[in-house]
């Protein structure tokens, strides 16, 4: 019998792991990105690759236009930086090339992570009919001007079609790196505790208190991992407070913001069922 046969994964049905361990490990089953995140990110990743290739092809053109070496480096940095505007902190690595260094500078020069820098148009994987086709880059060459200056390329940003990732409360427009964001990050424990208080208020019938706490959570923890839960509780609180029109508007907003959310079915049922009950009550 090999070692492979002797050891069973703890999450397998015939494992002898204790239930607590299995419950804790099982909590990681939902790890990963949502479909919308995958699609939005694909545009950024492919744009980066496309821009890298395009930057290499810009250099000879810039040379023929009489630009200095420094100008060419700036162009490459801008192309890559714009494509990777939301890029994580780039670190110096032994194998880093000149254009890599430029990419780092470009990423740091991106205007803001609150309003992500535009990416060249790249059809996301999920929407690409031919997976082998090269991504379409628009306007990368328009960065270089005849005067050797630079300007923002006119591009469309397909990543904006993804869910809103509101980070405005935890990010400074002038400090786009994750490290900088972390410096002003709030304690995640407060995040959960506040949501629990709101849920408790809702359960006890204190709808107004619940809504106030949820609004506070929205302000303080805009990018919370529990945003979907918060919005669902918010909608439920509005329904319970008989503010149905607002609940329906929030439900619509939720659908647009979190496409494919696991909370959607509950929200639909909440709004629909309560509307039915409401109609019956009004008739009565």
């Amino acid at each position: 019998m090999s070692d492979e046969q002797r050891v069973t994964h703890w999450l397998e049905a015939d494992s002898d792991a204790n239930p607590d361990v299995r419950a804790v490990l099982g909590s990681a089953k939902a790890d990963g990105l949502s479909a919308a995140q995958v699609e939005a990110l694909s545009a950024k990743v492919l744009a980066l690759a496309a821009a890298t290739s395009t930057a290499a092809s810009i250099a000879p053109a810039a040379s023929s236009a009489g630009l200095s070496v420094a100008s060419k480096a700036t162009i490459a940095a801008l192309v890559i930086g714009l494509a990777g505007g939301g890029l994580w902190t780039l670190r110096a690595t032994p194998d880093r090339t000149t254009s890599d260094v430029g990419a780092s500078r470009g990423a740091r020069a991106a205007p803001s992570r609150v309003d992500p820098a535009p990416s060249p148009t790249v059809v996301p994987i999920a929407a690409q009919p031919d997976a082998s086709a090269a991504p379409t880059v628009v306007a990368a060459r328009t960065i270089a001007t005849s005067q050797g200056g630079t300007r923002q390329p006119r591009v469309s940003d397909s990543s904006r079609q993804g869910p809103i990732v509101a980070r405005a409360n935890t990010e400074s427009p002038s400090s786009p790196t994750v490290a900088a964001i972390a410096a002003v990050a709030v304690d995640p424990a407060d995040d959960v505790a506040l949501l629990h208080r709101a849920a408790g208020a809702l359960r006890s019938g204190a709808h107004r208190d619940a809504l106030a706490l949820l609004s506070r959570h929205r302000e303080q923890f805009a990018s919370s991992a529990l945003s979907e839960e918060r919005e669902r509780i918010m909608i439920e609180a509005l329904v319970r407070a008989d503010r149905r029109a607002e609940a329906e508007r929030e439900a619509e907003r939720f659908r647009a913001r979190f496409p494919g959310s696991a909370q959607q079915r509950r929200i639909d049922a909440l709004v629909t069922q309560d509307a039915s009950v409401g109609r019956l009550l009004h008739k009565g």
Partner: peptide, 26 residues
């Protein structure tokens, strides 16, 4: 999944993935 389970926060997951694929591409 690997990033998340190796300690990257949910809020930083997209950026982390982007970093992986951009590093890989380079």
């Amino acid at each position: 999944r690997v990033l998340r389970r190796m300690g990257v926060r949910d809020a930083d997951l997209e950026d982390g993935c982007q970093e992986v694929f951009s590093s890989l591409y380079r």
